[in-house]
Write a protein that binds this DNA or RNA. Structure first.
Lengths: 198, 198
DNA sequence: ACTAATTTATGACTGTAATCATAAGTGTTT
DNA sequence: AAACACTTATGATTACAGTCATAAATTAGT
């Protein structure tokens, strides 16, 4: 995450993206550094059969889509606003110049990427293993601890729908619904009028 | 990947790791930057049921285990030498000093992490989806194109065993064996005396 | 050269998540 | 208030990867 003052200094513009609007698409090369000022963004893939896989959900003040700025690769997923959002957009060349002039910022960007890689590695191991219970708990715990910094038991109320959880874990809605009920039996989650607490 | 001259300048030591030896373990904090001089290293997790999941396999001159050097996180997986290996080991503080003094190197390290994240994102989408065929082809194509830079059809002969592929994809050996045979039928891979070509 | 260990292979059976069908509850829009 | 879309829910059935058992082929170790 880069300070707004720096973003402005280096010529970033704050753009509005309507809900459902694409910010970039899979397989495109990267032209900008993006950072959320307000709103929410998801990164996803659509599988051959049309099923969605959500790579991540980001909110302010997080940046996203940096990897292809660094390496000679294309976006591995789409980025789509899931709420009306304001997003800083800094051209690639200016981003490089900013990194060059501000080593601390470069370090923070590296940190952000490192954390994302860490999460992906954990999720990959979880996804490879089959158990729906573990997949779901991993996602919930990640959002609870890493994103929302909550430690109290059942202190995290997710605003993900069952379908969202399915798309994040690669499961089906019905499986998520059934597994969540089993997890409630086992006292791993609480469900209070349909809302999931962890 | 950092030039050996720089590594030496900043006090790195080249250590020998015997086959099967641990270089670091999951959940430990990072103390060193590692770079392979010779040999081969795998990063893996062991699931509760004892099943192995291989996060990645690295060979010279690649570095590994950088993310926890940057962010306040622990290793998400073990690193184990799978051949007798010589590995550069640079203390964390010296690594930071090196990055500070050599911005180009910092950029290259960022690039390496970015690429790894890219791969993880692709694999996560593939793992979430169930099809064994796609999981296996994704791994083979990744190794073929990204690691070995081969483009000719069936020009890549993998040295992974069926079990390796199983551990990389989260499948079972039997499933890998059967799926590879189906893939051969479909002319997606060639199998010449048990070796897999892609 | 011989033994042991690993890798590849195949068949039979099982368990579980996906799939399909249907519906009730909740929220949003006009 | 009605219409519509979305979300949650449940039951029945199916498909398919996992599991278990066993063995042949290959490689590594002494």
């Amino acid at each position: 995450m880069i300070e707004e003052s720096s973003l402005i200094d280096f010529g970033a513009e704050k753009r509005f993206y309507a809900k459902e609007e694409y910010i970039f698409k899979q397989d495109q090369p990267a032209l900008f550094y993006f950072q959320i000022a307000s709103g929410e963004v998801k990164m996803n893939n659509y599988q051959p059969d049309g099923k969605e896989f959500i790579q991540a959900i980001f909110s302010a003040p997080r940046s996203f889509g940096e990897p292809p700025l660094f390496a000679d690769i294309v976006y591995p997923a789409n980025a789509i606003a899931i709420k009306n959002s304001l997003i800083w957009r800094l051209p690639k060349s200016a981003f490089y110049e900013l990194l060059r002039q501000k080593p601390d910022t470069h370090l923070r960007v590296s940190q952000a990427i490192a954390k994302r890689l860490h999460y992906k590695a954990l999720m990959a191991a979880e996804l490879a293993q089959q158990s729906p219970e573990n997949r779901i708990l991993k996602i919930l715990d990640y959002l609870k601890q890493e994103v929302n910094n909550i430690t109290t038991p059942f202190g995290y109320k997710t605003d993900l729908t069952r379908q969202n959880i399915a798309d994040l874990t690669g499961l089906r809605v019905e499986t998520v619904i059934r597994t969540l009920k089993e997890l409630e039996q086992k006292n791993e989650v609480k469900i209070i009028n349909r809302k999931v607490y962890r």
